[in-house]
């Protein structure tokens, strides 16, 4: 119980820091929005009344609390350019980014976990060198460049399909997956390397444990020892890097959406920055931050839930 409480307080504290930074960045630093709205010729009375209307005449702490209150009500502000609530704009873009992230994470785990286990098995001089080198390269390649290279290979050279654009799931599920698979691979690549490296060490760590020796002494062969004992113990700690992977997948999709012209959150954010649509940027930063924090919190909870050692604490 103490564990959950501590994690909850940590999340709460982080949310406060995030809101404070966002508040100061977007509400205080950019200056007085009234002047830009009314122009420099506006008279004092007009300015004062608009300031009062917008609540800008109040002291900063009060403004902060009101601002947080609005967010809590689900009001993330309104886009200047689209004159629409930020949340509505995000909602239409969400499925794209979401499916990108899900597929990237699935690819990461589906490829990373088996390769991680295998690389622990072949961690001899040559194998270990090879694994180290390949994963280092995966970590070093920028995902957007991988995206460009994939477009070059599959779109330009092999002409398997015309890259870019998004087909929604409800329109055509097969085409939908096809439209996000290459960007997902591009995003997954460095994360696959993270999982392989982490899992390799985790398996090697577990192999030294007494229960492995005990399992061998019972007459299990090395395959069974791996399958029945080592893998589960080695994979559970991977959950702790999952939070990092999810935030790295998110960061990857912000950029890779641009490469494949996918109409997701990333493109919305980049164009909002380009258009200086600050309320939209602000709302999106808040939304993305909260999502990242919430996912991290869920992972912390999940970790303790899956590991029976902690369940009864």
């Amino acid at each position: 119980m103490y564990y959950y409480l501590r994690k909850f307080i940590a999340m709460f504290f982080t949310i406060i820091i995030v809101t404070l930074i966002t508040f100061f960045s977007f509400e205080i630093i950019p200056g007085d929005p009234v002047l830009s709205k009314l122009g420099i010729d506006a008279d004092e009375a007009q300015i004062a009344s608009l300031r009062a209307e917008l609540g800008l005449d109040m002291p900063i702490p009060v403004r902060y609390i009101k601002w947080v209150g609005n967010i809590l009500k689900g009001d993330l502000g309104e886009s200047v350019r689209f004159s629409l609530p930020v949340y509505d704009l995000i909602k239409t873009r969400l499925p794209v980014t979401f499916s990108l992230m899900i597929i990237s994470i699935l690819i990461t785990l589906a490829v990373g976990i088996p390769l991680g286990i295998l690389s622990a098995k072949y961690n001899n001089r040559i194998g270990g060198f090879f694994i180290n080198f390949i994963t280092q390269i995966f970590l070093a390649i920028p995902s957007f460049w991988v995206g460009i290279m994939l477009i070059m290979i599959f779109g330009v050279i092999l002409k398997w399909f015309s890259p870019g654009g998004y087909v929604s799931w409800s329109e055509n599920p097969a085409e939908s997956i096809k439209s996000v698979i290459l960007p997902s691979v591009a995003i997954a690549l460095p994360n696959i390397a993270i999982v392989i490296r982490y899992l390799k060490n985790s398996v090697l760590e577990q192999m030294k444990k007494d229960y492995v020796r005990m399992a061998y002494s019972k007459g299990l062969n090395s395959f069974r020892v791996m399958k029945n004992h080592v893998i589960r113990n080695a994979v559970i700690p991977v959950i702790t890097v999952l939070g990092m992977i999810i935030s790295s997948v998110l960061a990857g999709s912000l950029i890779v959406e641009q490469v494949f012209t996918l109409p997701g959150i990333g493109r919305l954010l980049i164009s909002a920055i380009g258009n200086r649509d600050l309320p939209l940027v602000e709302g999106m930063i808040l939304y993305i931050s909260f999502t990242v924090l919430f996912i991290n919190f869920i992972i912390d909870i999940l970790y303790k839930f899956i590991d029976p050692r902690i369940k009864y604490d």
Partner: peptide
Amino acid sequence: AFPVILFALMFVSVF
């Protein structure tokens, strides 16, 4: 907990 790129985007959009 934050992607570097997200913070950087926020930073350049303000400054």
